[in-house]
Structure formats: C-alpha cells, structure tokens
C-alpha cells in the first residue's frame, strides 16, 4: 500500500479536542479559586471575589471582605468541580473503550529502554533532532500518566473534603494534604507542559490539539518515525 505524504492523519479525535479545551477552562477556575484557599499569599484573589459580593452582603471591614471572598472561592471551586466531573465522566468512558489504542503505553519495558527514553528527550529538546520515537516521547507519556494519576487523586480527595462528615479526621487530614500537594505538582508540570506545547518546535501538535486534530503524514514521517511505521503497517 502506498501513502501520499500530503495525506492528513488524525492525531486527536474530536472528543479529545473538546475535552482539552474545557479542561483549560476548568484549570483556570480551579487555580484562581484554589490558590487563596491554599495560601494566604494569594488573598488578593479572595478580595477580588469578595469586594463585589460584599457590596450586597454588607461587609464593612477588610477581614469580612476576605472572608466573603474565601466563601465565594469555595463555592466557585465546588461548582467548577461539578462541571469538571460532568465533563470528565463521559470523556473517561469514551477513552476507556479505546484503551488499547492509547499511545502512552511504553513501547518497551526495562532499564535500557528507560535510559533510551532519556536520550531521546535530550536529542529532542537539547539537540533539536528527531529521534526514533512514536506518537509521544517518554516525557509526554510520563506527563500523561502523571495527569491521569493526579486527576484521580484530586477528584477523590476533593470529594472527601466536600463530604467531610463521612470520613475520619486522619483521612481528612491526608485528603487535605494530598489535595494541596498535588495541586502544587500539577502547577509545576502545567508550566512545563504549556511551554513545550506552545513552543515553535511543536507547532504542528499545537494546531492539531486546538484546531484541526490532524497532522501531515510527511511531518509524522520526519518527527515520529515509529508512529509512521505503525501507520504504514496498518
């Protein structure tokens, strides 16, 4: 079978594009409402929420405005969580149906492939070469697994903190701790994800995830040789 190199290949299906767009909105809401709850260094965000509401609530002192702001942030945080769940549940069901076609599984297991993965990262991001990789390199795969794991942790701990009366104090302490710790880790990895995702070397992937969902076969041949071989084979 011959392949036209101008052929377009579906990189992300419509549900992934739809979910990715919405998760960005949710993340913005989670971050701006979560930061003032996590640390009083971000109290200014609570004041931003509190000042307009306090006009109706009749708060006079700055402490009362902060308190109202935190209440508003907590309500927005929970409403965002509800919409996040409503969006994520159908997405997860659809994705799980296709679990075998996920390309975030390791190509090979073992210590040597693991170090080869590092070598590929070095070639991609430091030497700007195109090593023999599949659809995703090791860094992208690890990030994907981190996000899946951290979303599960955030959802479970978030639900525990929302329905506090059903859990022991110790369980709630760990839920609070993990919710905050994973929030910080997610921010850390999101900065790197956003940087690499919007970097000029990833222009094609950026266009695919936000607009077309497709990439040229020629591009795949050049930058994702292992994936290209799979496409040709199939």
């Amino acid at each position: 079978m011959t392949h036209n190199t101008n052929q377009k290949i579906e990189v992300f299906n419509q549900i992934i594009i739809w979910y990715h767009k919405h998760i960005i909105h949710f993340m913005i809401f989670f971050i701006i409402t979560g930061l003032p709850i996590l640390s009083n260094k971000f109290s200014f965000l609570a004041y931003i929420f509190g000042i307009p509401v306090s006009l109706f609530a009749g708060a006079n002192t700055s402490a009362e405005i902060l308190s109202i702001g935190i209440q508003v942030a907590r309500i927005f945080h929970r409403v965002t969580a509800l919409f996040f769940l409503l969006t994520t549940i159908p997405f997860v069901i659809v994705m799980l149906k296709d679990i075998s076609s996920w390309q975030i599984w390791p190509e090979k297991w073992g210590i040597k492939p693991f170090f080869n993965g590092f070598s590929d990262l070095y070639k991609t991001y430091i030497k700007f070469e195109h090593p023999e990789i599949g659809k995703y390199n090791m860094g992208q795969k690890l990030f994907a697994w981190f996000i899946i794991f951290s979303m599960i942790v955030m959802t479970i701990t978030g639900l525990m903190l929302t329905f506090r009366d059903s859990y022991t104090l110790e369980a709630l302490q760990w839920a609070k701790s993990l919710h905050g710790t994973f929030f910080i880790l997610i921010i850390f990895f999101l900065i790197i994800h956003m940087y690499i995702g919007t970097h000029p070397i990833n222009r094609c992937g950026l266009k695919a995830i936000f607009r077309t969902g497709e990439a040229d076969l020629e591009h795949i041949k050049e930058k994702h040789p292992k994936w290209y071989k799979k496409i040709v084979k199939s």
């Binding site: 640390s39 110790e170 302490q173 760990w174 609070k176 701790s177 905050g180 910080i184």
Partner: peptide
Amino acid sequence: SNAIALRNFAKASAPFLI
C-alpha cells in the same frame, strides 16, 4: 499532624518548584 506537615512542606517548596 504528619499529613498537614507534608502540606506545609509542599507549600514552602512551591516557590522554588514553580
């Protein structure tokens, strides 16, 4: 509380991490 101490540690490390 070990859990809250971990949270405090994560908060203190956050400026360096970010």
